[in-house]
Nucleic acid binder design. Structure first.
Length: 469
RNA sequence: GGUCCCAUCGUCUAGCGGUUAGGACACUGGCCUUUCACGUCGGUAACAGGGGUUCAAGUCCCCUUGGGAUCACCA
């Protein structure tokens, strides 16, 4: 194990969304590629907004995607004493100070500054206070350098620099004594020996403040890699109004985790013209250099295409397991004697793009009383088809080879002896068996259904036609 | 508004000074086919604009424009 240490540090204020998932994925991939350690840390210093449900939702999302972590989950709420210790250290060294300004005062000053076209930064009122004010609530602020430049070489964006005068004295501890994100993230990344911080673009402007903090605390500064944002179709930051943003929502909509992983990794990262990557190939090929600099639009169509690809090429037995909940939702419990689910799935794989479509497509196999689509029945289950269906059922009863190939031969021979074309028997058999005019290849359907069930369904259709006539 | 970041087909992207600017999704035409699909062959479609540097610029520099991020006792 190398000393490469990566982390994903979500705040538990909601589910795992696709942007967070991609950040987690990049961290996971790099950790696995370099033989490093992947840490999961829950940033729950904001007690008011953090919830246990969110924690669970995030863990569930990570697990579904197969992004297992090597260390953690650590909770920042468990580490408050550690943060206090470092705040104290800064205070003693004069690198932090008590600020007695109230939130209301600060808010007023900000508004005033904005109204006058100025910068809404802290004016330093308490920066040089010599005395403590007993009994008055205070926050702790970091004493940032007023001049100079803070620069860093971002692994994605390249050289970035900020003038320190743009940065103000950020609060590191609230008046209730709890620490604030920009401080805890530095303490944790330093004490957890994180070597590279891969995170969203939205943290870019926090980085110089954090670097200043690392330096004040005497910690080595990690490497940073800021990955671009994910946008919606209108190029605005991806949000619910663009559609589902929760990773688990995609599972529920019938998406496979490998499709989601493959889609996410290609949104912002590339390896030449390659599009399809197995988990192993990703670990092998992933590099930070492959990450692009610009924000990308989330494209549901491409995700759908990838999902279709993975369903088409997936192992039927595994798909069967994943399909079970979707079938149960539809009132189907594939029993041992019902059509073999693996076989059912094989006939459906290349025409289902989601597990939802797969489940819907599998339904007719398990309905003993197929519901005939009205238009399909009107066209294909008529008195004109009756003789052919009757003879075909008879013919089938004598048939031996019930493989798709054998059934195809049986059909062909039937057509020859009857002097008809495939189009005169195929469609009505299809409706008799499936109830609709679109279905898997009819030979495959018969093979899966088996001779007895096929004949039963044919006879039912014959009865249906007779009853109608 | 200040600061920071970004800019190749509608979308994701390849390109790392000399290419007929390539691939993928989507769209679309043909083929395959008993249905629907799959597959396969083809097509439409991009270097935001303007200045430089260079024998040569999508590739390097500057400006403009456009987009995004961020400016909390949130993370």
């Amino acid at each position: 194990m190398s000393d490469i240490r990566l982390r994903f540090a979500p705040s538990p204020t909601g589910y795992l969304h696709v942007g967070g998932a991609r950040t987690a994925l990049f961290n996971w991939l790099l950790a696995h590629k370099l033989g490093g350690t992947f840490i999961l840390r829950i940033e729950d210093t904001d007690v008011a907004r953090s919830t246990e449900e969110s924690v669970n939702a995030i863990l569930e999302g990570m697990q579904w995607l197969g992004l297992e972590w090597d260390e953690g989950p650590f909770f920042q709420s468990d580490l408050f004493p550690v943060y206090r210790e470092y705040v104290q250290k800064l205070l003693e060294e004069g690198k932090a100070y008590r600020c007695y300004c109230t939130a209301e005062e600060l808010e007023k000053k900000r508004e005033l500054a904005m109204a006058q076209g100025g910068k809404p930064k802290y004016d330093g009122t308490c920066r040089d206070l010599s005395e403590e004010i007993p009994g008055k609530p205070y926050v702790i602020r970091f004493r940032a350098p007023a001049v100079g430049v803070t620069a860093f070489d971002d692994l994605v964006k390249g050289q970035i620099s900020f003038n320190n005068e743009e940065l103000d004295d950020l609060i590191i501890q609230r008046s209730d004594g709890t620490p604030i994100y920009n401080f805890t993230v530095v303490i944790d990344d330093a004490t957890m020996k994180v070597s590279t911080v891969i995170r969203g673009d939205d943290h870019l402007s926090n980085t110089p403040r954090q670097i200043l903090l690392y330096e004040a605390l005497g910690f080595p500064v990690p490497r940073f890699a800021h990955v671009p944002m994910i946008l919606g179709s209108d190029k605005a930051r991806l949000s619910k109004r663009h559609g589902a943003t929760s990773v688990m929502a995609y599972r529920d909509m019938g998406y496979l985790p490998e499709a989601m992983i493959n889609y996410l990794v290609r949104l912002g990262w590339s390896h030449g013209d390659d599009e399809i990557f197995s988990r192993e190939e990703l670990v092998d090929k992933f590099t930070l250099e492959g990450i692009g600099k610009s924000a990308g639009v989330f494209n549901p169509d491409k995700l759908l295409w990838l999902n279709a690809h993975y369903i088409k090429n997936g192992d039927p037995a595994r798909l069967a397991q994943l399909l079970l909940p979707f079938l149960r939702e539809r009132g189907v419990e594939p029993a041992a004697n019902a059509p073999d689910l693996d076989g059912v799935i094989i006939t459906l794989q290349e025409r289902a793009r989601t597990m939802l479509e797969l489940a819907d497509g599998a339904l007719f196999y398990y309905q003993s009383e197929v519901v005939y689509d009205e238009q399909a029945a009107a066209k294909q289950l008529t008195a004109a088809q009756l003789p052919n269906l009757v003879s075909f059922a008879k013919q089938l009863a004598t048939g031996g080879d019930m493989t798709p190939a054998g059934i195809e031969i049986l059909f062909k021979e039937f057509c020859v002896t009857q002097g008809i074309k495939m189009g005169q028997i195929g469609p009505s058999v299809r409706v008799a068996l499936c109830g609709v005019t679109t279905s898997p290849a009819i030979y495959d359907v018969i093979a899966v259904l088996g001779k007895d069930e096929t004949i039963r369904r044919l006879e039912r259709a014959i009865d249906f036609i007779t009853a109608r006539a």
